[in-house]
Nucleic acid binder design. Sequence first.
RNA 1: GGAGCUGUAGCUCAGCUUGGUUAGAGCGCCUGCCUGUCACGCAGGAGGUCGCGGGUUCGAGCCCCGUCAGCUCCGCCA
Length: 674
Amino acid sequence: MPRKTHVPGRRAYSPCSANFRSRTRLSAISSASSAESWSTEPLQGFISHINSSYSGFQFSTTKGFFNVMSIAGYSAESLSNRFRSHYCGLLNPSFEQTEVRLGGWVHRIRDHGGLIFIDLRDHTGICQLVIQPEREELFGKAEQLHAESVICVRGTVVRRSPATVNPKLASGEIEVVLSDISIESNAQPLPFPVADELPTSEELRLKYRFIDLRREKIHQNIIFRSRISGAIRRYLEEKGFIEIQTPILTSSSPEGARDFLVPSRLHPGKFYALPQAPQQFKQLLMVSGFPRYFQIAPCFRDEDARADRSPGEFYQLDMEMAFIEQDDLFAILEGLMEHLVGSMSQKRITQVPFPRISFRDVMNRFGSDKPDLRIPLEMQDVTKLFVNSGFKVFASNTKEGCCVKALVLKGRGNESRLFYDKAEKRARELGSAGLAYIQFKDEGPKGPVVKFMSEDELSALKAELSLETGDVVFFAAGKWEPTCKIMGGMRIYFGDLFELDRDELSFCWIVDFPMFEYNEEAKKVDFSHNPFSMPQGEMDALDTMNPLDILAYQYDIVCNGIELSSGAIRNHKPEIMYKAFGIAGYPKEEVDKRFGHMIDAFKLGAPPHGGIAPGLDRLVMILRDEQNIREVIAFPMNQSAQDLMMSAPSEVLASQLKELCLKIDLPPAKEEKK
RNA sequence: GGAGCUGUAGCUCAGCUUGGUUAGAGCGCCUGCCUGUCACGCAGGAGGUCGCGGGUUCGAGCCCCGUCAGCUCCGCCA
C-alpha cells in the first residue's frame, strides 16, 4: 500500500488547561495513527457535519475518524456537531461567555416556578443548566421533562456568583444559561433511579442493565476496564507480544469443566464446543514460531457461579512465550502488574518481585494455596511436641502424613467465652471435629484441653510459639492437607480482627506444585494439575523419583487471597509426556488417542514454552475494590446463568431444531409431593 | 444436587418477635404554588392480590407446609 503524506488537521486549542492537555495527548496519538492509515478517500457524509470551531480536529479519512472516536471514549476530545460542541463535566470558568451545545441525560430538575435548573449529565460529568424567567418559550418544554430524558441544548457559559458556586461539581463554578432546548427522547418514569445511587435489587439492575450502566460507579468500572485492556495491549505489544485470535467454535474435550456445545448443521449429530480456554491453540502457536502470544480471550465454562466467578463466560489475559523459563515469565508478569497498578490506580504493591512460596510452604504457613498475605497471622507446626503426649487426640496425629497445627492470636487470651465458641463453630463448619485452644491468662493456662497436657508440654509450647500471658493458641490435628485447610480457614476468619489496607496489593507466586497426587478413591497416582506441565528434573526425575515427590513447573499468581491465574512451563518433549502419562496409568495408545494432535505437533519441532492467563474480570475487580464480578461486566448473567435482559437462554423454533436434527427430550416434570 | 438469607406501593424499606380497627414511611408519580436551587421548598392526590399455592385459625402480611424468584455458600471450576 502506498502511503500518502500526512496532512494534519486544523487545530484550535482552547486556553483551558485541562482540555488543552487532553487534546495535546490526543493529537500525538492521532498523528501517529493517521500516518499509519492515511488514505486519500474522502468521507463526505460523515465529515461534513464535523464542525471544527471548538474541537481540535477536522478529519478527512475513515480510519482517522474512527481512531479518534475510540479515543474520545475516555479522553476529553470534543467532537463538535449540531448536537454537541462540549462535554458537560469539562466546562469550567475558562469557557466563560462561550456559546455551547450540550447533549445528555436530565440528571435532576429543580423547578422554582419562575426559574428552572436542570442538571445535565453526560459521560464526563454533570453541569447545571439555567432557564431564566425571560425565556418563557423554554418553560413549557422544561416542565414536561422527566429525569433521564435526553435533551440537546444551546446556551452560554456564565460564571456563577460566589454564593451560588457548587463545590461538589467539577463544573460547579459555572452554569449554562439556555437559549434553546430540544427534547430528543422524553423518558417515562424509570424502574429505578439513576441519580440517587440507592441499593437496588440485582434482578432489576440486570433486567434494565442499560439504565444501571448510567450510574456513575458502574459506568466508571466499565471505562476502567476498557482502559486496562488498552494499557495491557500497549504494554505487551511493546514487549514483543503478538495478539492472535483463536477459534470460538472448537472441539469438546472431556477433561476439565463442562463444555458449552453448539450443534453443527453441516454435520448432523456432531457438536462444536466453546473453548474453556485457548490452551491448546496457544501452545500450537508456539510450535508455529510466534515468540510471544497474547489475547484477551473469552473463555466458556458451564459451571456454577460465585461472587468472583461469572457463570458461562469470562475473560483471561491469555499469554504464552517460547524459549523461556519460569523466572522469565514471572518477570514479565511482575512488570505488567507494576505498570498497570502504577499507571491506573492509587494502590501499591507490597513487594516486587512478588514473593515466591512453595505449595508445601504456603499450605503449612497459611493453609491455602491462595493466601491473603495482608492478614498478619501465620500457622505453626507443633507436631513434634506431641509425639509422646498423653493427649491422644494430638499424639495420634504425629505419624507420617498427619500434623498438629497451631495458630496464635496475640493478646486475645481474655476474650469472652462467646469469642471462642464462635471460633469453634466456624471450625466445625470448615469440617473440623472441633477446635482446641489454650488461653494464657494471668492465673495460668486455661481451656478445654489444658487438663490433658503436662507441665512440660505447656512450657515447650510456650517456648516454641513465643507465647506470652494474654495470648491464645488454637490447634487443629489430623491429616496434613485438610488440617492445613481448616486452619487456613480459621486464619481468614480471624483476619476480620485486623483492619486490612484496601490500597495494598499483596501479590505472590505459589510455585512447586506436585506433579502427581494419590487418588484415594481410584487407588492410583493421578496428575494433580495440568498433565502438559513440565516435571522439574524432566525425564531424570520421572525415571528415578517417587512420583509423589516430583514437582512441576506449575505456578499460581495470587493477590489478596484471590487466585488470578494458574500457569506452567509446558512439557514440549513427547517422550517425557508419554512417561508422565504412563505414571498416571495411561498407556501410549490412549495418550495418542486423546492428545494425539498435540503430541504430533510436538514431534514436528516444538520450542520450550510456557505461559499464564490471569483473569481480567478478577483483576479489574481487585483494582476497583468490587466484591462482585458483575460490577465489572457490562452485561452479566445472573447466578443461574440467565441473561434477564435478553432472556437467554431461550427456546428456539421447531424448524431450527429440525434443521439441526435435534429433538428435545426433557426429563419428566417433578411429581407433586403429597 | 445441597444449605442459608431475602421477597410488603414504581424504588428503598418498616410492620412479623406476641395473629385482631382502614398495612405505613422516604423517594418517585399526578395536580397546584414557588426567581438561586443543586437530595430545592410548600400544599394536595393517586398508587398494595403483602412473590405464588395450600394449611392451621372465628380471623393470617405475621404461624405451618410446599413452590417460584434473587443473592451468598458447599459440591463443581483440566
